[in-house]
Design a protein around this nucleic acid. Sequence first.
DNA 1: ATAGGGTTAG
Length: 562
Amino acid sequence: MFSTAVLFPFSTIAGTASKTLDFLIGFLQLRHLRNHTTSSSADEDLLSRFLRISQKFPKPNPNPHPIPNPDPLPLDPFHWNSLMKSSLRSDRPDEALRLFHEMLRSGVPPSLRCYTTAMDALVSSRRFAEAESMFHDMVASGVSPDAAAYGVLLKMYSFHLRDFDSAYALIGLMAGSGCAPDVVAYSTLIASLCRSRRTEEAWRVLDRMLGEKCSPNCRTYTPILRAYCAEHKIDEAKMFLEWLRTVDCPPDTICYNVLIDGLCKVGDFDGVESLFRESGSRGWEPDDVSYNTYIDGLCKAGRAHEGFQQLEVMLEKGLSPTTVTLNILLDCLCRESDVREVSCLLERSSELGFEVDVLSYNIVMSRLCSVREWSAVLKHFTDMLKKGVRPNTYSFNIIIDSLCKGGKYRKAKCVFDSGGFVPDVVTYNTLIHGMFLAGMTNELRFLFADMEREKIAPDTTTCNLMVDCLCRENNFSDAIDVVRNFRCVSSQEPVAHLTYWFVKSGRLSDLLMLFEEMFDRGWVPDSQVYDFLIRAFCRKGSCTSKEIYRICLILDRMLEVE
DNA sequence: ATAGGGTTAG
């Protein structure tokens, strides 16, 4: 990695931010001139363009840590709730809960609003059982829940736990307790169903709403629109958007932004252009998010220069780039240019005069992690702490990943056990993967158990890891059960992993039997299963063995189905 | 005044 002192000798330049910028642009142009290859001169150009425009990004707040009033506590429940809400808004549920308990200690009886906020804080910390029991405590203390209080539980069941039976039961309970579910409740449920790819069911909820004369609005419909886009059903999405006009819910900019994202994901940039062209006559105006989405789409499609061009268009329209825009460009620069140079940009963001956030750090740190610059990752992590940028679960996941990849398994486990963040499925997957490679079998057992206890739903990667762990210990029957019980239509990765291990251990008859069973259930293998199968055979050197006949049998069978 | 309606990471 470059020494930053050599690249940016700011310590010797006691200039203003703009002088610094001039220097930096000059420096990059110099490098540009020195470089003769066309491909890297294009890279340089992106960096220069970035720096030219960086003055338009939000400026860092000169005083990011206002010293809190040392003697607050005048407090009635309303004020307590305001404090708790502001903690929650700045993503500090722990702080909100601390306030709640302080309020209890000071003898102020919590209002309905306070209970609701505290429950919300518990839910966002994934402390679900406690959220439920707080609800019961509240009722027991004579405070009756309103739609908002039920709403927190509904969000917990539907969004977090994806336990839709409980969610429906709660909706029923609401109706029976004189607090009939409203647009907000139904919209929460619909959004959660769509996120769990249960769009059909979301439509049924919509029908039920209409049956109860509860009018949906744009926020109710947007998740459905998003579901169409996620499935690349752009024509359906467009029709749905037009249909909204006929049900007296003219789509707003947010709806159009969902469509823009969908168009970008299928690479239909002309489609985006024509949406923008016709926006005025269709009754909406693109906003900063519209352009962010478009710019990101272009950058991800390898059309970074066009992306940067749209930034100019955005400015011409009087829209201001945000920190999200900055992050989109940082991500783009990481891929199109040298990660280490972007790393230096981030390090010097204050001098360069733009505000960075958690995501800026996470983006650069994860890129640094993938080029094995682990010490740089840790350096940025400490930098962000110094700057008062609070790391989130993503940041911790990157740190854990870096430590594992750098062979510091114990340190990774310490970070995990520190309790300074709320782990998610990726945290567990990262650590499990690390422990698997390190051969720390006992730790693995604990981690899987932890995950279950914390009610963190396993994803495809978890399932792959389970298969790998079980097979390595020759526990093939449990591995088969994992694959059988894992309901994830979108992926065959776990099957591919199982296939690999079956071949590796020479259990070809068992593999054939499993395949037959799955064929009978209408299974069609995908290219990933082939890939693992072929790789396993190659690694085993089976091509010369007498098993080749059976391999051909399997491959033929698969090809026939494909 | 209750909605994880939209963009950035893996």
